[in-house]
């Protein structure tokens, strides 16, 4: 009789311990939050690889949770799920860090390109201001001034895009503006040379 009671007691304690295996809700929520933070940090644009790794880690965690859910309640164990949650949390935090770094890098590159564009515009403006405005080149110079004004308007667009934090788009626009300014500078130079040739021919 004593043996039977002891056996039942041990079984109850075991069942109680087994039934206490719960989902690591805190860890899962932390992973989810970290992944949201990575997405909010625009990891999809600035840290695609890291974000994919974090999403894979979360998928593995979800697979483990699904597997445990399919088991009979008394036989569930979330030890491995906790390990996976820790790995997914690390990967998500890494994605957020990489996104911030990537965004900062893109911001620095866009800033550099915008500075170059401003310098190129200023240089072109100087060239236009000092270009000899003879009868022959005045028309070209005036047309090129209109071209430069258009590029300056484009730079204002770049500033607007930059201020909204779309650094990759700002980079592309700034690159295009630099190329346009360089072409205008080449045209100004050609107009100046043409004026010089005309003057030489007159002399």
């Amino acid at each position: 009789m004593k043996g039977t009671l002891l056996g039942v007691g041990v079984l109850v304690v075991l069942l109680a311990f087994a039934g206490c295996a719960k989902e690591p809700a805190t860890e899962i929520a932390a992973v989810s939050q970290a992944l949201d933070q990575a997405r909010a940090a625009e990891a999809a644009e600035y840290a695609q690889r890291s974000l994919a790794a974090a999403q894979d880690a979360q998928a593995q965690l979800q697979a483990e949770l699904d597997a445990q859910k399919k088991k009979f309640a008394l036989f569930r164990s979330y030890g491995h799920a906790k390990e996976l949650a820790a790995a997914a949390l690390t990967a998500s935090q890494q994605a957020a860090t990489d996104a911030a770094a990537g965004k900062e890098r893109a911001r620095a590159e866009a800033t550099e390109l915008m500075t170059q564009t401003r310098a190129a515009i200023e240089e072109a403006r100087q060239m236009l201001a000092t270009a000899p405005r003879g009868k022959g080149s005045a028309a070209d110079i005036k047309a090129l001034e209109a071209d430069l004004a258009s590029v300056e308007a484009s730079l204002a667009e770049v500033d607007g895009i930059f201020s909204t934090g779309k650094y990759n788009a700002a980079k592309a626009k700034a690159q295009a503006a630099i190329q346009s300014v360089n072409r205008i500078k080449a045209d100004v130079q050609a107009a100046i040379e043409m004026q010089g040739k005309a003057r030489a021919a007159r002399q």
Binding site: D147, A149, S150, V151, Q175, Q179, S180
Partner: peptide, 18 residues
Amino acid sequence: ERMLLQHARTLAEEAAVL
């Protein structure tokens, strides 16, 4: 019109970059 044409050129440059 000159500025519009230049803007078109800049857009085309941006399209090439993208």
